[in-house]
Design a protein around this nucleic acid. Structure first.
Lengths: 152, 152
DNA sequence: TATAATAAGGTCAGGGAAGGTCAAATACCC
DNA sequence: GGGTATTTGACCTTCCCTGACCTTATTATA
């Protein structure tokens, strides 16, 4: 309902990715197809196909330019957990959300699991003064990722 | 008999829910229809369609924004979450483990989800002095259960 | 071989379109 | 009269979309 232009373009690109594992496109063509400004394509790419969401995009300008989008390689869970545990300054909420989303995108975490974790690392849930809060968040996330990686 | 505006809007939304199992609306439209301030809709949502009352609402801002209301699949979970949040003394590790196990047994939490939560509420992960540790554990568990109840 | 023209894609600020929050005012009910 | 419930309005945050301007690559031309 009330599909926005951005949503439509997102689906378009996702469909291309399903088909062949990669989406190759010309920015102007896609923009013309949806009758919008070319920069709209960039908006969709940066909001929906960011590295945090598990995508990598490469492009070239000039004559014969193009944009290519592929899914990025899965992160290694135990390594991420180890990194989090070593981190001296912990991790901010935005960073945690990015990691969780990333793990979800690559199949390590289910939709529900990701949803649960996101709700738990929130600022207002942890509710501690700042050096400790980020540290705690890192410990929590590390524990969760470790549990996931061992649970199979 | 005094049917307040809030009551009327509540019935309106309930009727939508009866019809199709979900109420999807635009806040401004509904407000215009009842000739009231848009924030009145939020008032109705927070007083009559809260998680404790067994409803889940999701919304999006910006162009193409919307509000969607559905009945919660597990009305018990928000109750437990509310209980935990109200608890003045928090919850000990053993208590949390018991709750998680029970949720797992009743099918509200999957095996993996239970494992993850257990690993997160551990004493050595939370690592805080004692009044705060139990309080934090309660907040974490409450957040998790609420997230589950809003599962998608 | 420089240089100019052309053909891409990139960036960023800004306007508009939603919904969210909160405190103050008002109305209702003992 | 006091307490609770309702209602509003001012202000905020998020999301979408565009247009002006910039950078880079290729191609044509002097």
């Amino acid at each position: 309902m009330s599909l926005t232009l951005a949503d439509a373009i997102e689906r378009h690109i996702l469909a291309l990715l399903e088909e062949s594992g990669e989406a190759a496109l010309q920015r102007v063509d896609l923009a013309r197809h949806y009758d919008c400004a070319p920069s709209q394509i960039n908006y969709v790419l940066s909001t929906r196909f960011s590295p945090e969401r598990g995508f990598v995009t490469v492009s070239r300008r000039g004559g014969g330019g193009y944009i290519r989008i592929v899914r990025s390689v899965e992160p290694e869970l135990p390594q991420m957990a180890a990194m989090l545990r070593r981190s001296q300054s912990g991790i901010a909420e935005a960073g945690a959300v990015a990691i969780i989303a990333r793990c979800n995108a690559s199949g390590w975490l289910g939709e529900r699991e990701a949803q649960i974790l996101m709700s738990m690392v929130r600022r207002d849930v942890l509710d501690l003064p700042l050096p400790e809060r980020d540290l705690l968040r890192a410990r929590l996330l590390a524990a969760a990722l470790l549990a996931v990686s061992q649970g199979r």
